[in-house]
Design a protein around this nucleic acid. Structure first.
Length: 112
DNA sequence: ATTGTGACCAAAC
DNA sequence: CGTTTGGCCACAA
C-alpha cells in the first residue's frame, strides 16, 4: 500500500474501469489528474498487491498492446478474454473496448 | 549532481 | 506495420 495521495487517486480511477472495458496508462493518469505521467501509473500498478483488488489487467498501452512480458502478460490476456474482450496476438482494439467514463462519473467519482 | 532504466506516449518518418 | 526522438517521471547506483 501507499498513503501518497497521487497513488491513492490512481487506485481510485483504476478501480472504476468496468469489466469488459480497458484503459491506457496515460488515460488513467489523465483522469487521476496527473497528465503526462503514464509511467507513474505503470509503476504504481506494478507495486500494487492483490489485496487492493485493482483491475490491473484492464490497463494497456495506448496502442492496445499488453505491456507486460512473460507469464504475467499471459495472465493478463486470459483475464481479458474471460471478460469477453477479444485479444488478437497480445493486442486489443482500443476503438472497440476503450472505457469512456460518463459525465456522472466525472462529476461524482473522479473530480471530487 | 549525473546516469541509466522502466508494465508509457505522441509525432514523425 | 517498425523505428527514432523528445517528453514525462521516480528511483537506484
Amino acid at each position: 500500500m501507499q498513503e501518497n495521495p497521487q497513488w491513492q487517486q490512481i487506485y481510485r480511477v483504476a478501480s472504476l474501469i468496468p469489466a469488459g472495458q480497458v484503459a491506457s496508462y496515460g488515460q488513467v493518469a489523465d483522469l487521476a489528474g496527473l497528465p503526462g505521467r503514464a509511467r507513474l501509473v505503470a509503476k504504481v500498478l506494478k507495486a500494487a498487491d492483490a489485496s487492493q483488488h485493482l483491475p490491473w489487467h484492464r490497463i494497456l498501452r495506448a496502442s492496445g498492446h499488453i505491456a507486460i512480458q512473460g507469464q504475467q502478460g499471459e495472465q493478463q490476456r486470459l483475464r481479458l478474454v474471460s471478460e469477453g474482450v477479444v485479444v488478437e496476438g497480445m493486442r486489443v482494439k482500443m476503438s472497440k473496448y476503450q472505457w469512456q467514463p460518463s459525465l456522472y462519473l466525472m462529476l461524482h467519482e473522479l473530480s471530487g
